[in-house]
Design a protein around this nucleic acid. Structure first.
Lengths: 144, 144
DNA sequence: TTATATGCAAATTGTTTGCCTAGGC
DNA sequence: GCCTAGGCAAACAATTTGCATATAA
């Protein structure tokens, strides 16, 4: 694991508020969701500014960029190492309620001798809310 | 882990050749790379057909769609569970030379009680070729 | 014969960029 | 005052789609 190059950024309203909002959320919003959220506090903010800052903040190690959930990138204010559950039904990305597992990290770092910066672990399945919906409305043997 | 819904697809030249080529490669090509490869065998094939078939084949569980490596999606003819190394320098995606690790799977499936279809594990770091270049041409102190 | 797949090109989507002004330090 | 950051709109790149024709079953 490598440390991030945290450089000194100029403190602007947009930047500060984007970061604040992301730190408060566990919903891993997309850029346009962040845009809508920030717009409530800075009505004239532009989508370009959102994108620029999300990029800068993630380069700077203050947020995480999540890819792999389809077409849109998502952002995570939690920079600690944690795992995600991606729901195949609703597309939601949830944090798994656990610390990084020692046995996984041990296994991983025995695996290769290369320079490894970090790792990503995603479970793909059905999130609890969708699970609930399913079991509630499951007819004995649904036809067509 | 859930089985894939492998439905019967009509067998066309484009479909068959895309699959053949992907099964022969370990380079995880992008859609346009697949297009160039297939074009050598079907000169009038269209990029739309490539995209449509890559989508269909991955829905059908015959190939894997890889996302998260930046702007372009990549495709993998190896549908067995295996891990990837993503190179931060060159963007290459390599297979890790190992079987899925028992201790990882054990840890994972203890982690949640949800319905899990599969999981993805990516190491992010420097691939052997880039590593080699680095150590060979390492100047006293300079990068970029 | 009939539904599925294709070629082609236009459309869409998510993201990035240029340019000029505003504002943090 | 200098230089980074922002607003806005236009540009881009990757992917998707509509439609008329071709082809597998």
């Amino acid at each position: 694991m490598m440390p991030h190059n945290t450089k000194k950024l100029r403190q602007t309203d947009a930047r500060r508020i984007i970061l604040e909002e992301l730190k408060d959320l566990t919903s891993h919003p997309t850029a346009d969701e962040v845009y809508e959220i920030v717009r409530k506090r800075i009505p004239r903010v532009s989508l370009g500014t959102i994108y620029r800052n999300l990029e800068i903040l993630s380069e700077n190690g203050q947020i995480q960029k999540l890819e792999g959930g389809g077409t849109q990138r998502r952002f995570d204010g939690n920079t600690g190492n944690h795992y995600h559950l991606r729901c195949v039904d609703c597309g939601r990305v949830m944090d798994l309620p656990t610390q990084p597992l020692k046995e996984i990290e041990r296994a991983l770092f025995n695996l290769v001798e290369y320079e490894i910066h970090h790792y990503k672990l995603d479970l793909i399945g059905v999130c609890p809310p969708c699970q609930a919906v399913k079991s509630k409305s499951s007819p004995p043997a649904a036809e067509d």
